[in-house]
Amino acid sequence: MTGRVCRLTGDESFCQRIREMGFGEASLVTKISGHTTSLCMVNGTRLALNHDAARCILVEHLPAGAR
């Protein structure tokens, strides 16, 4: 499942760090696995996010043709 990051919530420090890791607004993210803890692929990097962190990243789903 691939989507585009549309908004980051959460504290400033967290938002800054994930933006610095290339996980900012408009970046493409693919969820690989996980339920409470998610494993995602962003810019070729596998990133694990815990449940609270994942809830701070709002993603819009992209249909296959729109990627």
């Binding site: 504290d11 990097t45 990133l47 694990a48 815990n50 609270d52 962190a53 701070c56």
Partner: peptide, 11 residues
């Protein structure tokens, strides 16, 4: 407060 985790998994 619950900490937010972001961890890189290497190949």
């Amino acid at each position: 407060a619950p900490a937010l985790m972001i961890l890189e998994l290497p190949p």
